[in-house]
Design a protein around this nucleic acid. Structure first.
Lengths: 131, 131
DNA sequence: AAGTGTGATGTAATAACATAACAAAAATTC
DNA sequence: GAATTTTTGTTATGTTATTACATCACACTT
């Protein structure tokens, strides 16, 4: 097994950020350490990290986020604040059932779920419509 | 009221295709009629069409699809076949509740839902694992 | 008809996101 | 230690999307 240096560094970068980052933002950070890093460098690392599940890709932002979810009982739901950019991961109980029920009705066999909710986090919501 | 020629033409193009198209595929078709069409042309038309709800953007494909859903009681679910590329829209009853329940727990106020399921449609599933 | 306001369209350039293709280097296996 | 495989480096390019500004076409007034 090889060292996979970049993978670890990307994880570190995402851990420090505590929020979503685009591939090119990550690339910028990688370059602080290794000026030779190029787009394939970061996309390779991200592929392996998303494949293994410790990083999630947020499709509607073209961005990546360290997995924060406890277990992986169901598809993760990403709650994305349109105002401050904060993203929270959750895993509601019934969601998988709901989506599986759909599958049963239509004969569709699900492999990967993308569930992303855009809106306002509680902080930003309060700020925009104060009590 | 102005004519909004491109909007109508984009709708027609999507109606003919009966499936998802990328903005640049649409642009190619637009150019068959109007060689002057450029990226902003198609993105403007698509913005107005997606804003009004008659076209959906599929985030995980960077593609656009004519709305096929009956009513809009809840967030549309896009079922995307990884094999044949077919996309079906549905609107399961309980989904909105499920996602709203999540909101209630966390204080997040949802504005827009993205629910996309990748997998195999019934045809492709049968073909890959025959009875 | 001439002027004016508004929304649609044209145009050029570029930003932002992602992958292809191949070369070189490092680790693993034999 | 030679062969093989995997990872990394490098260059280039492909794909998706937006910015910024100019112009056009129509509707409406005067």
């Amino acid at each position: 097994m090889k060292r996979a240096k970049h993978k670890e560094r990307v994880l570190e970068i995402l851990r420090e950020r505590q929020g979503p980052m685009t591939a090119y933002e990550i690339l910028g950070e990688l370059r602080a350490v290794n000026p030779k890093a190029a787009p394939p460098t970061v996309y390779r690392a991200l592929k392996s990290l998303t494949d293994s599940g410790c990083v999630h890709r947020i499709e509607s932002l073209n961005a990546f986020l360290l997995c924060q979810g406890a277990g992986h009982e169901g598809p993760p739901v990403m709650s994305i604040c349109s105002d401050c950019g904060r993203v929270d991961e959750s895993a509601p109980e019934g969601l998988l059932q709901e989506l599986s029920g759909l599958a049963a009705k239509t004969g569709f066999t699900p492999k990967r779920h993308v569930v992303e909710v855009h809106g306002l986090c509680s902080d930003c919501d309060e700020r925009s419509s104060p009590a």
